[in-house]
Design a protein around this nucleic acid. Sequence first.
DNA 1: CTACAAGTTCAAGTTAACTTGAAGTCAAGC
DNA 2: GCTTGACTTCAAGTTAACTTGAACTTGTAG
Lengths: 141, 141
Amino acid sequence: MLTITDVSRRSGVASSALRFYEERGLIASERAGSGHRRYPRSVLRRIAFIVFAQRIGLTLEEIGAELAKLPADRVPSRRDWSRLSGQWTKRIDQRIAELQRLRSGLTECIGCGCLSIDRCSLANPADMAGRKGPGPRYWLG
Amino acid sequence: MLTITDVSRRSGVASSALRFYEERGLIASERAGSGHRRYPRSVLRRIAFIVFAQRIGLTLEEIGAELAKLPADRVPSRRDWSRLSGQWTKRIDQRIAELQRLRSGLTECIGCGCLSIDRCSLANPADMAGRKGPGPRYWLG
DNA sequence: CTACAAGTTCAAGTTAACTTGAAGTCAAGC
DNA sequence: GCTTGACTTCAAGTTAACTTGAACTTGTAG
């Protein structure tokens, strides 16, 4: 079993963040008699998954929902993990496609004038990956 | 000259956001005798640029720095705009490359076990596009 | 002339994902 | 036995990019 500092050092995630993740139900810990957290090694894989997913653009809430699909009664297997990540490939591909669209827009649109808003091909981009809230929504979806 | 509602409607950016951008120095307006804002049509191009750049991942601060490079004495030309966006292609390509790395990591790493942190190829990803602050920094750069 | 829609400023609220600080407990070395 | 460092909780602070609300003024249609 690992202490919070062990986990922090091995994962690169600050202890404060680990406590925060626990509060949000993303990871769990047992307690030593003293009240100090003790983590099984398997938590490292879980944390790796969290960081990974964040980098792809999921929010902690979404990540929590994914993690909730893992079996609670045993350490998740290879198959369990890959089932979760299956969905993501699509999401990544969409984001890549959007970036490519943006890139070609850079050379084709900004110079030409269609960025003056009306009929640019960028006016109808792909998904938003975590921005449902306020902000400029016309071009952003 | 356009009113703030005109600009908002044409750009899809809320008037509150337009005032906010002005406060941050990203756009400018003249005033009617009443104190109401009046915008030249060229502001639409500028706003398009802002939204565009945000979508690529620049912060408003970075965008402000870019916009500051435009000539102040005249309406920017095609060339002026394309000079600004030249830098971005590189940035977009890096982000795309990272996403591709993440995608292959999904199928190759999460299943296999190297996500148990030590020597995964994902442990050393590309640039961060606007996350210098707090957060898990080990994998994220 | 009277509504009322649209505009103004300024301060404060919002969300995500954490961090920081205060105040206190626990464990280990000397 | 004492100091030091790691740990705990809980509340409050942080940053970006806006939004919302209050209180007030202007412009316009009937």
